[in-house]
Design a protein around this nucleic acid. Sequence first.
DNA 1: AATCTTCTGTAACAAATGTTACTGTACTAG
DNA 2: CTAGTACAGTAACATTTGTTACAGAAGATT
Lengths: 213, 213
Amino acid sequence: MIQEIQNNYGTLFENELLEEINHVGTYKEVPEGFELIKPGSYIKSMPLILGGAVKILREDTDGDELLLYFLESGDTCAMTLSCCLGHHKSEIKAIAETNTKLIMVPIEKMEEWTTKYKSWRNFVFDSYHKRLMEAIETIDSIAFLKMDDRLLKYLRDKTKVNQDHIINNTHQEIAYDLHTSRVVISRLLKKLEQEGRVQLNRNNIEIINVSSI
Amino acid sequence: MIQEIQNNYGTLFENELLEEINHVGTYKEVPEGFELIKPGSYIKSMPLILGGAVKILREDTDGDELLLYFLESGDTCAMTLSCCLGHHKSEIKAIAETNTKLIMVPIEKMEEWTTKYKSWRNFVFDSYHKRLMEAIETIDSIAFLKMDDRLLKYLRDKTKVNQDHIINNTHQEIAYDLHTSRVVISRLLKKLEQEGRVQLNRNNIEIINVSSI
DNA sequence: AATCTTCTGTAACAAATGTTACTGTACTAG
DNA sequence: CTAGTACAGTAACATTTGTTACAGAAGATT
């Protein structure tokens, strides 16, 4: 048994299911920036995240994109779930945010486990709930917050999933995630620096205090 | 057996489940504007919609609100689902968009049916998928569209769920749903009228052509 | 009819965000 | 070292959206 399965899913699933996951799943390590899911592609296996983080993005027809949310250890991708179960195409893009360890489970097992294991059913329901809540939280941000607060929230989320107070991104990359322009991000970051909340360097941002209020 | 159950869910569920729904559910008719779910409340039964339409709104702490999506016949509320299964509080508000017929099913049955009926499980998964997709579509609108296109989309959705090319709302009501100000809506509607796409009257808007492109 | 309320139209302005253009600086490759 | 490239800072401006204020029309109330 891969130790990470036990660590991340041990309290969630019964041993029998853990063994099955270990048996039928394929262990995989992907580097930061790796594209796990392309929009429009069909999905043949679903990822259970064992370590690292994955960012889920929405892309519109013009190629503009927007960060939806991050997945972390113990999470799975609800879009993948519903794509698997409903045999739809992917509507999102998934990129490894850090080096990420995951185990890929073939979709045939999904329905089987749904019937067989109550803990799996609850996991699937819970994943849907979490993702729906995160999508709604994203809606809150875009609808109710101005760009300065959205940026603060982004920096908070980013430090959390990366577990690092240094954010290694260019202003342009942040602008893509928040679907705005580089100049806007530079402007707002400069303001945050003047307020003593961040320290700006080339290719990275040192977080000092990005709490709200 | 209530005929509407058969009509709306007959192809989805086996007879045994239809009978159970008929037996344990409470039939209910609510008028337009009726508040079905308050944010922050606990939910003790889940609604299956038999006729009419329900609008689902998100409210922020200041009482500002935003339309998430509409539910129609054959739909159920995914938030209710996950609130029931996870015993969380409601995070949304549901208002009858038109006179609406629904059947309320006590939450105890939910888990039971999830184990017992494959068709019910699939219905629940499918509901989650649909709602997640609608939430993401809402994100698309807010993130990628300007207010004029969001208004067009709103008018389209509204004519669809109401099955009527007359929209009986004030500009202020539309402004609430789109989380903007009345003046902005009046301004954009006037522009649409000048383009010959709508006809503005007091308390109602006659839709002539609100297709995009 | 006179009054009051609600709804809409419009102007003038403010604020937030997006765009373009140009700078200098840091790093990279040859 | 030199040239090229990516990144960040900044100004000037355009556009979109939000705000305030007020006027007139439609409808409701007395």
